[in-house]
């Protein structure tokens, strides 16, 4: 039974129902291998509808959800440097201590903003063949002119943003990769 059924394991689509039925036949050993493959497929993330991103500026938002990729073309996922529309899912609580420019531009939960993707978990391929992969998906909130809402960027961003005229974000970032 095992030898006959082994072939379709590699040929079939990795769907949940199939995996459940497979586990009945093969026990744990084969299913664990399948889940490893599945995980690898999932870790290659592009940014599209419902993707959650970290916000790395001091606009007040912490986690946002992508609701639209502002890009037209056959591939409608966002890469580094692409603009997206986001909803703020989690925001830092408003403090009275915060004053000045950053206090005026703070965003709240459920606000709709624009953002630019600055890091992706999916490898970003450069023209010379090298790739850069970050451990998270992150964005910086911007206004409609492309200027950042916050006044600081706390972590690294990709180099490509400079070529795409997001010079302010690159200048604020402590390091580029």
């Amino acid at each position: 039974m095992k030898t006959i059924c082994r072939r379709p394991v590699f040929l079939c689509n990795f769907s949940g129902s199939l995996e459940a039925s497979r586990s009945k036949f093969f026990g744990t050993a084969l299913t664990s291998r399948c889940t490893v493959i599945r995980k690898r497929q999932h870790s290659r993330k592009m940014i599209y509808l419902k993707s959650l991103l970290n916000v790395i500026d001091n606009s007040g938002a912490q986690i946002v959800e992508c609701i639209k990729v502002l890009r037209h073309g056959p591939r409608n996922f966002a890469k580094v440097g692409d603009e997206i529309t986001v909803v703020v899912k989690e925001a830092r609580a408003l403090n009275k201590e915060i004053t000045g420019q950053s206090a005026n531009n703070r965003v709240k939960r459920r606000d709709i903003c624009r953002a630019v993707v600055v890091r992706t978990k999916s490898p970003l391929i450069r023209p010379d063949g090298s790739t850069v992969r970050f451990d998270d998906n992150a964005c910086v909130l911007i206004n409609k002119n492309g200027d950042p809402i916050g006044t600081r960027v706390s972590s690294v961003v990709a180099k490509e943003l400079r070529e795409l005229n997001y010079n302010k974000i690159v200048a604020l970032a402590p390091k580029t990769f």
Partner: peptide, 17 residues
């Protein structure tokens, strides 16, 4: 790692740059 954020770079060895 930079600020607890992992960064991976794949570098072609024979890149003339």
């Amino acid at each position: 790692k930079f600020n607890k954020l992992g960064i991976e770079v794949r570098i072609p060895l024979f890149n003339p740059k």
